[in-house]
């Protein structure tokens, strides 16, 4: 193997790290179209349905979801701080703030579950019931995925030297978390604010 092929290989590896971030961003953009489609469907249903709310339901309680919103939006800043700590190679700072993000994400899921259990309509209660559970459920699934990814990254941080050669896993998890956050803001406005 000549020298030129070795540098070629190194170049390739460096490229690969960048490619993965590219690929992940493309996936998120594509994923956002699923949410956009659901949102578009929601708007169509809300503006055209004859009997929008199921019988006996007057509207959605906004207090709990508002608290949840504040928690989730703040967690985006917390995960950013965690990432900064990792860049400064302060691994414990990273772990603490990373764990805090996970706690906030878990609280969000808990709040969502509490809200669901207090509701007097189900996913078969007309179109409203369907889209409500579809949107919050599909988003909740993403939050759960985010928390699980964060758990994996936290465990990986205990493997010595694991984050020496780049932090693709951490960066992509963080990007995913911001994505989930932005989607929630749109969802919150559509479902809870615009009633």
């Amino acid at each position: 193997m000549t020298d030129s092929t070795i540098t070629d290989k190194e170049l390739h590896l460096e490229h690969e790290e960048d490619n993965r971030m590219w690929g992940f961003s493309i996936i998120l953009l594509s994923e956002s179209v699923i949410f956009l489609s659901f949102f578009a469907g929601y708007i169509v249903y809300k503006t055209t349905a004859v009997n929008w709310l199921p019988p006996g339901v007057s509207g959605l309680e906004i207090r709990e979801p508002a608290i949840n919103t504040i928690i989730l939006v703040s967690s985006s800043f917390v995960i950013y701080i965690a990432e900064r700590f990792l860049h400064k190679e302060n691994i414990w700072g990273f772990r603490i703030f990373w764990l805090l993000t996970m706690a906030m994400g878990s609280y969000f899921l808990y709040g969502q579950a509490v809200e669901w259990m207090g509701l007097e309509f189900g996913f078969t209660s007309g179109v409203f019931g369907g889209v409500f559970y579809l949107l919050t459920g599909f988003h909740g699934l993403h939050v759960l995925t985010g928390v699980l990814l964060q758990a994996i990254m936290l465990i990986r941080s205990f493997i010595p030297g694991n984050y020496a050669g780049g932090e693709f896993g951490v960066e992509s998890t963080s990007l995913f978390w911001h994505f989930v956050d932005v989607i929630w803001i749109v969802l919150f406005v559509l479902i809870y604010v615009w009633q």
């Binding site: 953009l29 594509s30 956002s32 179209v33 699923i34 078969t124 019931g129």
Partner: peptide, 25 residues
């Protein structure tokens, strides 16, 4: 594919819910 296919996925998920769990989309 990247911008179009997710729309079909969204529709298919809703159709599957209608077919299998009784939603009303």
């Amino acid at each position: 594919q990247l911008y179009g296919l997710p729309a079909l996925t969204a529709g298919a998920v809703m159709l599957l819910c209608d077919l299998s769990v009784g939603t009303a989309f």
